[in-house]
Structure formats: structure tokens, C-alpha cells
């Protein structure tokens, strides 16, 4: 068992969490608009990283192209808002469902394979989705994307988007936590730790993995809708595989065997990108160096390191897995 924060919402952590939420609710009235926007981006990315970690950290699957589903969610919402006259909320609801549907389609192929095969096939199939969004000018706007998406006035301001993002993040993280603690979540983690044994005691490993992928891609779609709300536009970079691997780094940076690690990872990464990006155009170079430093010095991530350091659980996190 490598998951540290079995009791993320225990009595001890309840105080700090409530305090953090109060601060986040009050913050927009104090800080300038730019920072509100950055925080909204962090909420969105944190949700996305949390959804990715459902399959990567809890499920042990090499979900290498999570961004594809995020992009599908965002594009679905954007297309429905701009090209149809259906009610707006329908677009917001359709995004996640479409993402989950694409997740099901791609997942069906991927779960037939394991580990690296899984990851490579997913990168490839996800890239097909990217290629379609990138080239289908008449429908998706090609590499220009879609801009000026009409939004309900309640959430079209930066502050509105901020609160919308905060509420969605809290809701989704709560649901992800409930899934994580449910029998299904426990089974998923058992499959991650020992798929052969799970298979032997009669668990349908593939089906559980597929369900996990569908749930995770649903939340990725929610994050995609949130992107539309925050940015008011979509473009094919959302579905690009490099971004997906960046998400992977966020989970690693935060600590993927912890529950809340990806939120921290996303926050650190977005802040770095924003403030380092001001000084240099070579952001990916810096990202690469950060990743190498992480691999060598902090493989269990920041949150995992802190948890270990301050004695919540002394077990070594990243043991070399025994060969099957």
C-alpha cells in the first residue's frame, strides 16, 4: 500500500482545508485581476491533474494522453456554444459526456494492452484526435481554434470564472475523493499494486480499468469546459501530446501516490510557467531541467516528500517494483 493520505479529510486536516477555502473565497476582493485569472487557471489545471491522477496514481495506468480528453471536452462545449442555438448549460453538460465517450472509445483499445503498450497506443490515438482538430478548418477552426465564445454573463467576468472554477474544483475533488475511498477505488488500487492477483481472485481487471478511464476522462471534460469559461476560446494545443506529458509532470511534481499532490503540482507548475515565462522564451528548457531534477532528487514529489519528512507515514514511497 503506497497511498499515504488515506485520510485526506480527517479531523486534523479539516481545519487547514476550511481555512484555505475561506482564504480562496475572500481573495478575489483583495488581489489584482491578473492574479485572479492565474488562480482560475490553477483551479482548472488542478482539476485536470486530479482526474489524471485517478488513473495514473490510483489506477497505475500509463495514461499518457489525458489532454486529448480535456480538449474534446473544451471543443465540444465551445462548438455547442458557438455553432448551435441550444441552451448554454447543455454545452457545458455535453463537454464532459463527450470527453467520457471518447475516453471509452480510446480506452477500449488501450486496456487490451498493458504498461508501455498502453501508453504508446494512447498517445497515438490521442494524437489522431489532435490532428482532426488541427486540420478540420471548417468545423474546428484548425490551428486558429475558436475565439470569442459567448458565455453567460454570470461567469464571463474573471471573478465569475474564478468562483465557477472554485466551486467545480471543490465539487469534483470531493467526488473523486469519494470514488477513491469507495470499494471501487480500493479495487482499482489493488489492481495497480498487483494485477495478477486481482485477476486470480476474480476481479475483472480490464473492466475496472476502463471504468476508471471513463470517469477520469469525464472529469477531464469538466476541466475542458472550465477552460472555455476561463479563456473564452479553444485551440488545438490543448490536445497536443506534449501538454499531456506536462500534466504527467504535474502529478509527479506534486506526488502521485498522495491524494492532493496533483493540486499542488498544478499550482507550482502554473505559477512557474507564468512567472518564469515573463523572463525567458525558453520555458520548455526550464521544464526539462525541472523534470530531470525531480527524477533524480524528488521522485515521490513535493507533497509526498513533505508527508514523508514530517512523519505521517515512514514507508518508502517509490520502491522498485518487483518484476512480474
Amino acid at each position: 500500500m503506497r497511498v499515504l493520505s488515506k485520510d485526506f479529510f480527517n479531523l486534523r486536516s479539516l481545519g487547514p482545508i476550511i481555512a484555505l477555502l475561506v482564504v480562496l473565497v475572500i481573495l478575489p476582493s483583495i488581489i489584482p485581476r491578473f492574479y485572479i485569472y492565474i488562480l482560475a487557471v490553477i483551479f482548472m489545471t488542478a482539476l485536470l491533474a486530479m482526474s489524471l491522477n485517478m488513473v495514473v496514481g490510483h489506477g497505475g495506468l500509463f495514461q499518457f494522453h489525458h489532454g486529448a480528453f480535456y480538449g474534446v471536452g473544451a471543443y465540444t462545449a465551445a462548438l455547442m456554444l458557438t455553432k448551435t442555438s441550444l441552451p448554454m448549460w447543455l454545452g457545458f453538460v455535453a463537454g464532459p459526456f463527450m470527453a467520457a465517450f471518447v475516453g471509452l472509445l480510446i480506452g477500449m483499445f488501450c486496456v487490451r494492452l498493458t504498461k508501455l503498450y498502453f501508453g504508446m497506443l494512447q498517445i497515438s490515438l490521442g494524437s489522431l484526435v489532435w490532428a482532426i482538430a488541427f486540420r478540420w478548418y471548417s468545423f474546428t477552426g484548425g490551428d486558429d481554434g475558436i475565439h470569442g465564445i459567448p458565455l453567460p454573463s454570470l461567469i464571463s467576468s474573471t471573478k465569475g470564472a474564478y468562483y465557477f472554477g472554485l466551486i467545480l474544483l471543490i465539487l469534483c475533488v470531493t467526488v473523486i475523493y469519494l470514488i477513491f475511498k469507495s470499494p471501487f477505488g480500493a479495487t482499482l488500487q489493488a489492481i495497480r499494486d498487483n494485477p495478477e492477483r486481482c485477476e486470480a481472485i476474480g476481479i475483472n481487471v480490464r473492466r475496472h480499468q476502463l471504468i476508471a478511464i471513463v470517469i477520469a476522462t469525464f472529469f477531464a471534460g469538466v476541466a475542458g469546459v472550465l477552460f472555455v469559461v476561463v479563456e473564452g476560446s479553444v485551440f488545438p494545443d490543448l490536445l497536443f501530446w506534449v501538454f499531456s506529458l506536462e500534466l504527467f509532470i504535474m502529478c509527479l511534481l506534486g506526488g502521485w501516490f498522495t491524494f492532493a499532490g496533483p493540486i499542488l503540482g498544478a499550482a507550482i507548475m502554473i505559477s512557474l510557467r507564468t512567472f518564469v515565462g515573463i523572463y525567458t522564451e525558453y520555458w520548455t528548457l526550464i521544464l526539462g531541467i525541472i523534470l530531470i531534477l525531480l527524477i533524480f532528487f524528488l521522485p515521490e514529489g513535493v507533497w509526498g516528500y513533505l508527508l514523508e519528512k514530517f512523519g505521517f507515514q515512514r514507508k518508502k514511497l517509490l520502491e522498485k517494483e518487483p518484476d512480474p
Partner: peptide, 9 residues
């Protein structure tokens, strides 16, 4: 992930 870092760099 190392090869990915190499790609970025």
C-alpha cells in the same frame, strides 16, 4: 520521463 525531459531540452 527522462527521455521526455531530454526532448524538452
Amino acid at each position: 520521463l527522462f527521455t521526455f525531459a531530454l526532448m524538452l531540452i
